[in-house]
Computed example of a mutant assay.
Amino acid sequence: MYRKIVCEKLSTNFRECTRIMTAPLPKVRTSRRTRRAPCEQSHHVLGCSPQALNSGSILVKNEWCGINASDINFTNGKYMPGVKPPFDCGFEAMGKVAKVGENVTKLKEGDSVVYTSFGAFSEYQEIDARAAVSLPKIMPEALPLFVSGLTASIALEQVGEIKKDEIVLVTAAAGGTGSFAVQLAKQAGCHVIGTCSSDEKVEALKALGCDRPVNYKKEDLFQVLRSEYSDGVNVVYESVGASFFDIALNNLAKKGWSQEGGEKKPSTPITAKLLGKSASIRGFFLNDYTREWKPHMAKLLQMTQEGKLKSLVDQQACKQFNGLESIPDAIEYMYEGKNIGKVLVKL
């Protein structure tokens, strides 16, 4: 048996809408005629006989999992409208191969792998072997590259269409995804402004190459943008919402764009503001860009190996959060803005 976190009702309160459940570990197929038990979906396996491991799959014993702002968007149904509980939670994990399907040739038991898949908040998970990236050893710093790194890389290139010498504003810049966005925008030759909530984070952003860190608890972001960037910003990587979204929208340069993130209605209709600047708001969801995953991951891994990209991991979180029981605490820790870099939980 193994344990996993399952969402039982739609809610933004991760702690209240989820619980830890147990399920039987899958068995390796003994012949090609072996078929799965009738209860194929992972959130339906309780009380069923063990499933057979798919011939092209591997079973991973997870050692680390990543925390994302998307974890709450997933449990409240925002990312998958119409989804009905129960369903498994979590998006990314790293661990060692525990079992190998009969047609898997490139991986073996004991290999270290990292992957992204629904249901990663689990002690074990079956995944398609093709989705796993092999590692020489368990490397927590490689885990943020998947969801956070891919999101920043693809969004800036495909949606933001950033160009050299543009001014890019990144909100939540010291977080897991924001820290990648800052570095990638700098690599593209842009001038980068990054928002954060403490002097410690300001120093972390400077170390990443951020040109103008803004501690919004000490400085007025709107006034900083109006006084220091009077012509506006070209691209805004916006992942906070509320007032940050409005500030970003009001400070867009002509033909600029902002990633959608806010709910608050400005006094002037958004359409009028966009029309007056020939600007745009563009949404981004990582799962809509699966064809871009492999080339962008290859680029991120190469940049990391060459020392051109730093995977920023929150060291305090690594020490503080252990086991599935600590995942709700880790999510709250991130939403309280305490993290510098990616929040990881050791399983």
Rank of each mutant, 00 (worst) to 15 (best):
residue 207 A to M: 10
residue 202 V to C: 05
residue 42 S to W: 15
residue 221 L to W: 05
residue 36 R to K: 11
residue 219 E to H: 01
residue 224 V to A: 07
residue 137 K to V: 13
residue 76 N to T: 08
residue 163 K to N: 09
residue 145 L to Y: 07
residue 113 V to E: 03
residue 105 T to K: 12
residue 32 R to D: 14
residue 184 L to S: 01
residue 285 F to T: 13
residue 247 I to R: 01
residue 68 N to Q: 14
residue 192 V to Q: 05
residue 40 E to K: 14
residue 144 P to A: 04
residue 133 V to F: 11
residue 75 T to D: 06
residue 333 Y to V: 10
residue 158 Q to M: 00
residue 201 K to C: 12
residue 241 G to A: 08
residue 22 T to W: 10
residue 317 A to M: 06
residue 128 D to L: 07
residue 47 G to H: 09
residue 341 G to Q: 04
residue 344 L to N: 06
residue 148 S to R: 02
residue 30 T to Y: 12
residue 153 S to N: 05
residue 183 Q to D: 04
residue 341 G to W: 07
residue 91 F to C: 10
residue 247 I to S: 02
residue 120 A to E: 06
residue 121 F to Q: 09
residue 255 K to S: 05
residue 328 P to F: 02
residue 199 D to V: 07
residue 232 G to Y: 11
residue 64 W to N: 07
residue 92 E to F: 10
residue 156 L to N: 01
residue 89 C to W: 08
residue 162 I to G: 00
residue 184 L to M: 08
residue 240 V to W: 12
residue 155 A to H: 03
residue 233 V to L: 04
residue 70 S to F: 09
residue 36 R to P: 13
residue 222 F to N: 15
residue 328 P to L: 06
residue 290 T to Y: 11
residue 248 A to G: 15
residue 206 K to P: 11
residue 73 N to W: 15
residue 275 L to P: 01
residue 305 Q to P: 06
residue 203 E to C: 05
residue 187 Q to H: 13
residue 77 G to K: 07
residue 225 L to T: 03
residue 261 G to F: 08
residue 233 V to W: 08
residue 207 A to S: 15
residue 307 G to I: 10
residue 277 K to W: 03
residue 338 K to P: 03
residue 10 L to E: 02
residue 266 P to H: 05
residue 84 K to P: 05
residue 85 P to H: 00
residue 230 S to I: 11
residue 101 G to M: 02
residue 96 K to A: 12
residue 262 G to K: 03
